[in-house]
Computed example of a mutant assay.
Amino acid sequence: MDQQNVEKLFTQIDEMATAISEGLNITYLEGVTEALDILYQGQVFEDYPEKLQVDIRNKWLGFNKNHYENEEIRKAIQLATLKGMKGVTQQQHLLTPDAVATFIGFLTGKLTEFHEGSIRLFDPVCGSGNLLTAILNGTDKDIVPYGSEVDDSLIQLAVVQANLQKHNIEFFHQDSLQPFLLEPVDVVTADLPVGYYPDDAQAEKYELKAGEGHSYAHHLLIEQSLTYLKEGGYGIFVVPNFLFESDQAQQLQMYLRDHAHIIGMLQLPEDLFKKEKFARSVFIVQKKQEGTKPPKQALLVKLPSFSSPEKTSNVISQVNDWFSDYHSGKL
């Protein structure tokens, strides 16, 4: 990956998005989606004001997506998306940190190391598609990807991002706690939004519904993910560090005991988060299947800062050793 290419493409997307958002009186993030769609289509939309059409043709239509690697495209889009989300506080409008997305891709590869055939992978809260495309870019495995997102602007951004990176992803534009027309998958990955789910009537259909008041959306999404996992499949979730300390934690623990094996909990570096209360971990489970069992020793790791290559390398080496023992049946 060439960082100069990332910066060059970001500048192009940024300038286009700014011009489009001002010309059409839309948000910058919507302008990013429009700009990416134009770059993908290779032509300006005819319903744009004439001056805007001329500006885009004269300044920005020299783009050739074949000149860029997928990761260069993803990172440039990520920078533009981060700019568009600046100051936004809604959990669903936050990007998975790049180092975390890469690490989840690594874990996905380790968990499916000996999987035969294609791997069906689903992200039920895919947002702009950053985590999903990071996983696809970081593997040579045959992955059949699916993503779901309820937010209009984010699902549109996810679609054009996938198109530019030439990923054939099937997207669902819906509330991810509603039923899906989806066959069970091998892996679910999700950076879970933390908070209450407002639809109490829909929450009533879940085992993890709250006894009173609103249910936790992140709990319900774990249950929904297990519903759409094949028996023996894996769930990889980015969760709050306080997951098992909340007022509904005991209910979650009982549910997991009945339906899943806990494979591991990896605490992410604290310097990734502005405040300790926002700190997150990667939580790995396996859906129960006849003949499966939990590891004798779960993968419990506190990750050092990703800015410390030597310490990170040592921990990754330990994680690799753990997976070798796990797959060989020693654990």
Rank of each mutant, 00 (worst) to 15 (best):
S305L: 13
R74H: 04
A210H: 04
I135Y: 10
A35D: 03
K110L: 12
L82G: 03
K288L: 05
D258N: 11
I316F: 09
I77M: 02
G233L: 02
G232H: 09
F63Q: 02
E22W: 08
K302R: 11
E245T: 03
L121Y: 11
Q12S: 11
Q202N: 12
N5H: 14
D47C: 02
S281M: 14
Q53M: 10
V144A: 02
K166D: 15
N168K: 09
A76M: 06
Q297V: 10
L299F: 02
H218D: 02
A158Y: 01
W322G: 02
Y326L: 08
Y326H: 10
G31C: 12
Y197F: 13
E204S: 15
V285Y: 06
V185G: 02
S128G: 11
K275E: 15
N241H: 09
L36T: 05
L268A: 10
A35G: 09
V88S: 13
K293R: 15
Y40G: 04
L303W: 06
L95G: 10
P145D: 07
L111H: 04
Q156V: 02
G109N: 14
Y234R: 05
G232K: 07
S313H: 13
P124F: 05
E50V: 13
M85H: 08
T139Q: 10
N5F: 09
E207R: 15
E30P: 04
D123G: 14
F172N: 01
I38L: 11
V315C: 01
F106I: 00
G31S: 13
V315S: 01
V32I: 11
Y255T: 05
E149R: 00
T81W: 05
L164H: 03
T112G: 05
K302M: 04
V150W: 00
L331M: 10
